[in-house]
Simulated assay, not measured.
Amino acid sequence: MGDPRFFTPEALTTFAGGYPVQPMKLTHGLLAHPLLGLPALQQLARELPADSIEYNPGNLPVGIAPEDVPTPERALEQALEGLESAGVWVVLKRIEQVAAYRDLMESILGDLAHVVQPRTGAMLRQEGFIFISSPGAVTPFHFDPEHNILLQVRGSKTMTVFPGDDEAIFAPHVHEAFHLGQHHRNLPWQEDFAGKGVAITIHPGEAIHVPVKAPHWVQNGDGVSVSLSVTWRSEWSFAEADARAFNHVLRGVGLNPRSPAPYPASNRVKALANRALRRLRG
C-alpha cells in the first residue's frame, strides 16, 4: 500500500475490519479541500449536464413514492445561494465528468483499493456524488447498488442503515425489479422497520461505509450540510445483480428460486446463466 492521502491508518484498519458487509464510521482528511466549498460546488452545478443534478424539497417523510415527491418552490441557483432557508437537498451526480473532481474521487478510492480488491475485485464503474442540503432535510428510505463511502465535509447528518439481506424489509421481487429497471430506489416504509436500523451520526471529518443495497434514510442536522459520496461497483455486486435478474426469469416460469447468498458467496452460477441469456437475447 502507498501512503494514504485522505484516510489515516486507523481509519483504514477499521474499514478492513468490516468491508464489504458492515456499516461503519470512518475518519477522513478532506475538510479544507477547495473543491468542496460552496462557491466551488455552485460552479460545479453550472458545469454538469442537467441530467446530472437531482433537486428535491427537504421536508419529506421517511417513506414516499417517487411520483409523490413535490417540486421544489425555488429555482436551483436560488436554493444553492440560500440553503439555510431553502428547505431542499441537491445531488450533483457523476462528478467525475469534471476532470478535477474525477482526480479527487480517484485519489480517495485509491486509498481503499488494497482492502477492496482482494475481497470483491477491481473497483469498477467509479462514480462520485455530492449532496448539498438544507438544515433538517430528509432523504427518504432507499437503497443503492454500489459500494459507498459517504464523507461529511460540512454540517452533520444521521444515516439510519438497515440490513441488506432482510427480506422482511424488501422482498426478493423488489430486488429483481430494481435490477431490471422496473423499481425506483425508494422503498416503502413501515414503522416496525425502525428497530432494525442502526443510526450513525457523522460530523465534518467523519464518514460512513454503506454496504451494497443496505436500505437507509438520512436526516441532516441543524446546519447546512455538504457530503461527498464515492462509489464503485465490483464483480461481486454485478454477480448479485445478475443472479437477481435470473431469479426473475425463473419466477416467470413458475419456480420459486432461492435468493442470492450474501458475501462471501459469489452467486457465480446464476450470474453466468443470466449473462448467457442476455447474450442470446441480443
Rank of each mutant, 00 (worst) to 15 (best):
R5G: 08
T8C: 06
E10T: 13
A11W: 06
A11R: 04
T14G: 03
G17A: 15
G17F: 14
V21M: 10
T27A: 09
H28E: 02
H28Y: 10
L31Y: 07
L31C: 09
A32V: 04
A32H: 09
L35V: 05
L44F: 09
L44W: 07
R46I: 03
E47C: 08
L48N: 06
L48G: 08
P49K: 15
A50N: 14
D51A: 14
D51Q: 15
I53V: 15
Y55F: 15
N56H: 14
P57C: 10
V62Q: 09
A65Q: 11
P70A: 04
P72M: 09
L76R: 03
E77Y: 09
L80P: 03
S85N: 12
S85D: 15
A86K: 11
V88N: 08
K93A: 15
R94N: 14
I95H: 04
R102F: 05
R102E: 07
M105Y: 12
S107L: 14
G110K: 13
H114N: 12
A122E: 15
M123D: 11
L124Y: 11
L124P: 11
F129P: 04
F131G: 04
F131D: 08
S134C: 06
S134R: 04
P135Q: 05
A137R: 01
A137T: 02
V138S: 01
D144Y: 01
N148Q: 04
I149K: 03
R154V: 13
T158H: 00
T158W: 00
M159Y: 01
D165M: 04
H173A: 11
V174C: 01
E176V: 14
A177M: 11
A177D: 12
F178W: 10
L180E: 05
P188E: 03
W189T: 01
W189I: 01
E191Q: 07
F193E: 00
G195K: 00
G195E: 05
G197W: 01
I200H: 00
T201V: 10
T201I: 07
P204N: 03
G205V: 02
G205A: 01
G205M: 01
A207L: 04
I208A: 02
A214Q: 02
P215K: 02
H216Y: 08
V218K: 00
Q219E: 05
N220M: 07
G221R: 02
G221F: 03
D222Q: 02
V224G: 00
S227C: 11
L228K: 05
T231E: 10
W232A: 05
W236D: 02
W236E: 02
S237E: 07
A239N: 13
A239C: 08
E240V: 15
D242S: 14
A245P: 09
F246I: 13
V253E: 00
P257K: 02
R258L: 15
P260L: 08
P262A: 07
P264N: 01
N267A: 11
V269H: 07
K270G: 05
A271E: 05
R275F: 05
R275Q: 09
L277G: 04
L277C: 03
R278D: 09
R281Y: 03
